[in-house]
Simulated scan of single mutants.
Amino acid sequence: MTTELNVFSTIAVQPAVESLAPSFETAHDCRLVVTWNTAPALVKRLQAGEMADLLILNRAGMDTMISDGRVAPGTDVTLASSATAIAIRAGAPRPDISTPDALVRTLRAARAISYTDPAAGGASGIYFAKLLDRLGIAAEINAKTKFPPPAGLSGQFLVSGEAELAVQQKPELLQVPGIEILGPLPGELHMVTTFVAGVETASAKAAMARALIDFLCTPPAAEVFRAKGLDPA
């Protein structure tokens, strides 16, 4: 019988992991059963009693799980990192976001924008909401903001024409056909999220989970992470 390896993973690495999974499954005669969501949502589910063999979370989420005793000591490994970026519909005029002041002007000029709902727990949404507060434009921008559903993609609103700018992790933006990355948040506003894998302490398949982490750290895997918009560790 094919072994199933249960993985709880943040959606930021979904394109890379889904591309790499078939090779690992074939080599190890197993099947990856992956639950995709934002890292905070996954942490809540784990704290409510759910289990997985392998966790792929942001650094903050992994630190919480380590503190809770849910990650086997010494198994947490940094896989990759990603910048929060801004996208536009493919072929649309490219507004200036080269400086913080230029970004503020561009956000104010946009008819509508989309970023992930901070209540859903995504790192980019939480950071961007705080950034709007810090820039003093939160009420103005949020009045014309469209939030995707939890674990959704803000870039979809660019394709539908419901928004002119979308903000999210770069690999999540790259999942949406028909849009273009304008660039990362400028200057001191730049934000990078680190993604970490770790083996669940109570997993009965710890050896296979460790093998998956090793596989995700190989040079060929690093190239896939890079192609999907992440910076491998």
Results as ranks from 00 to 15, higher is better:
residue 4 E to H: 14
residue 184 P to I: 05
residue 92 A to Q: 07
residue 141 I to T: 08
residue 205 K to W: 05
residue 69 G to F: 06
residue 209 A to N: 10
residue 182 L to V: 10
residue 61 G to P: 06
residue 44 K to W: 00
residue 214 D to I: 02
residue 44 K to I: 05
residue 11 I to W: 02
residue 149 P to D: 11
residue 207 A to M: 10
residue 144 K to C: 08
residue 167 V to D: 03
residue 173 L to W: 02
residue 15 P to H: 11
residue 18 E to D: 15
residue 194 T to S: 13
residue 64 T to K: 13
residue 163 A to I: 06
residue 1 M to H: 14
residue 190 H to Q: 13
residue 66 I to R: 11
residue 61 G to V: 04
residue 5 L to E: 08
residue 3 T to K: 15
residue 13 V to I: 15
residue 58 N to H: 12
residue 74 G to F: 03
residue 19 S to G: 10
residue 16 A to R: 09
residue 153 L to S: 00
residue 169 Q to P: 00
residue 203 S to I: 10
residue 13 V to G: 09
residue 80 A to C: 15
residue 45 R to P: 00
residue 60 A to F: 12
residue 204 A to V: 14
residue 61 G to Q: 02
residue 5 L to C: 13
residue 36 W to T: 11
residue 122 G to R: 01
residue 226 R to W: 03
residue 201 T to Y: 08
residue 15 P to W: 10
residue 166 A to F: 11
residue 222 A to W: 00
residue 119 A to P: 01
residue 74 G to V: 05
residue 95 P to F: 04
residue 118 P to H: 03
residue 71 V to I: 14
residue 144 K to Q: 03
residue 182 L to C: 10
residue 145 T to R: 07
residue 71 V to N: 06
residue 226 R to C: 06
residue 115 Y to T: 07
residue 140 E to K: 12
residue 211 A to V: 07
residue 207 A to T: 14
residue 98 S to V: 07
residue 54 L to S: 08
residue 75 T to N: 02
residue 162 E to Q: 14
residue 140 E to C: 13
residue 100 P to F: 03
residue 216 L to N: 01
residue 83 A to P: 03
residue 97 I to F: 03
residue 33 V to S: 15
residue 208 M to P: 01
residue 133 D to K: 11
residue 89 R to Y: 00
residue 202 A to P: 01
residue 150 P to G: 05
residue 124 S to H: 05
residue 69 G to T: 06
residue 152 G to D: 06
residue 56 I to V: 15
residue 199 V to N: 01
residue 190 H to V: 10
residue 157 F to Q: 08
residue 139 A to E: 15
residue 93 P to A: 07
residue 91 G to Q: 05
residue 103 L to K: 00
residue 65 M to E: 11
residue 72 A to T: 12
residue 85 A to S: 15
residue 43 V to F: 01
residue 216 L to M: 14
residue 95 P to S: 06
residue 199 V to H: 04
residue 175 Q to H: 00
residue 216 L to G: 01
residue 182 L to T: 10
residue 51 M to W: 09
residue 145 T to V: 12
residue 1 M to K: 12
residue 142 N to D: 14
residue 222 A to V: 01
residue 199 V to Y: 02
residue 30 C to I: 10
residue 40 P to C: 01
residue 50 E to L: 08
residue 131 L to Y: 10
residue 128 F to K: 06
residue 87 A to L: 05
residue 91 G to H: 06
residue 196 V to S: 02
residue 86 I to A: 04
residue 212 L to Q: 09
residue 189 L to C: 03
residue 152 G to H: 02
residue 227 A to S: 14
residue 87 A to Y: 05
residue 213 I to L: 07
residue 185 L to A: 04
residue 35 T to A: 13
residue 214 D to A: 15
residue 36 W to C: 13
residue 5 L to K: 13
residue 191 M to V: 04
residue 31 R to G: 10
residue 145 T to Y: 00
residue 51 M to A: 13
residue 137 I to H: 05
residue 124 S to N: 09
residue 190 H to R: 14
residue 193 T to C: 02
residue 71 V to P: 03
residue 111 R to A: 15
residue 210 R to S: 14
residue 213 I to S: 05
residue 181 I to K: 01
residue 232 P to W: 09
residue 197 A to V: 04
residue 76 D to F: 01
residue 219 P to F: 01
residue 167 V to F: 13
residue 184 P to F: 04
residue 71 V to S: 06
residue 151 A to H: 09
residue 160 S to R: 12
residue 168 Q to Y: 03
residue 188 E to Q: 10
residue 183 G to T: 09
residue 147 F to W: 13
residue 207 A to S: 14
